[in-house]
Amino acid sequence: MKDNLYKYILGIADNSLILGQRMGSLTGHGPSLETDIACTNISLDLFGQVRSYYQYAAKIAGDGRTEDDIAMLRKEREYVNVLLVEQPNTDFAYTMARQFLFDVYHLLLLNELQKSKDLTLSAIASKSIKEVSYHQRFSSDWIKRLGDGTDLSHQKMQDAIDALWAYTDELFHQTQADKVMVKEGVGVDVTKLKETYYKQVNEVLEEATLNIPESKYFQKGGKEGIHTEHMGYLLSDLQYMQRTYPNMEW
């Protein structure tokens, strides 16, 4: 139970960590000061959630590791985030598409997680729901603006949606730990979120005058620790200090 709970927490937390890292690296480089500030807020929300999850995971693991050890001292194969969130900040369309495709899932997940028998998880979920509702509003608005903006922005947004679509299906895969935790009444059965997810996503895409991708070919592996080639570089940054200067406090 303990081992599965630990894995289950990481399965949720790693997504926020990696997406937070991606969004955070945009600070100072966005299309306007106002969007910079907004994207940093999203990143800060995600890192805030991450800290709560990892602190809990550290307690569950009970082997002396801290939130930072869990965040920064695992090997790439031990990170279990979905492939979607590690995709690079190719341009603002990709950034917003990635955010949107994750936000819709994230909010559905948290709504269910709120009902978890595990009171810590349910408390973190209740707090995060407000943040993530705002993220979804923000990213949906940008999907519409870019989708139904100029010809150029429409094309770029369509490209981004098409490219990232392949990573959406993995959101609804269950790991072994997930299945156990669902049975215990702790975890969320993500397979049940799938239909609502695509319905909500498609509504926004339609409003944004974008085509809903028809491709049925999907990528997976993140939840089992098999990542895209982008992940190693992201981790090199994330882990740089902890790896270069082991066993120090900052």
Partner: peptide, 16 residues
């Protein structure tokens, strides 16, 4: 602040 429309202005105002 600057914003393209009222909705964005509200969101930006919240963030800023």
């Amino acid at each position: 602040l600057h914003a393209a429309d009222a909705e964005m202005a509200l969101e930006n105002a919240r963030d800023v």
